[in-house]
Simulated scan of single mutants.
Amino acid sequence: MVQDASIYLAGKKLYGDDFTQEQIEEWFKHEAEGYADLWASDYEKYNYAYHKLNAYYGFRHLANHSMRTALGIGSAYGDELFPIAKRLEKITILDPSDTFADVREIAGTPSQYVKPNVQGDMPFEDAEFDLITSFGVLHHIPNVSYVVRECFRCLRPGGIFLLREPMVSMGDWTKPRPGLTKHERGIPLKILRQIVQEAGFEIQQEALCMFSATSAIASKLRIDPYNSRVATLADSALSRVFAWNDRYHRVKLREKFGPTSVYYVLRKPG
Score class of each variant (00 low, 15 high):
V2E: 01
Q3M: 12
L9G: 09
Y15H: 15
I24T: 10
K29R: 12
A36C: 07
S41Q: 02
S41V: 01
Y43K: 12
Y46L: 10
Y48H: 12
A49P: 07
Y50D: 10
Y50I: 02
Y57N: 13
F59D: 00
H61R: 13
R68S: 14
L81K: 05
I84E: 00
I84S: 02
L88G: 06
I93Q: 03
L94W: 06
L94Q: 02
V103Q: 09
A107N: 15
A107L: 05
G108D: 06
P110L: 06
N117K: 04
V118M: 04
V118C: 11
V118H: 02
M122E: 03
M122C: 13
A127Y: 10
E128Q: 15
L131E: 07
S134M: 06
V137T: 13
L138P: 02
L138Y: 03
H139V: 06
I141L: 12
C154A: 14
L155D: 07
R156F: 02
I160G: 03
I160N: 05
I160M: 08
F161D: 06
P166A: 09
V168W: 04
S169V: 04
P178S: 11
T181E: 05
K190T: 04
A199M: 06
G200Q: 11
F201M: 14
I203H: 01
Q204I: 11
A207D: 11
M210N: 13
A213H: 08
A216K: 10
I217N: 00
R222G: 02
I223Y: 01
P225S: 09
R229H: 04
A234P: 00
D235G: 08
A237I: 12
V251Y: 06
K252D: 13
R254Q: 07
E255C: 04
F257K: 07
S261T: 04
Y263H: 13
Y263K: 03
K268T: 11
G270F: 02
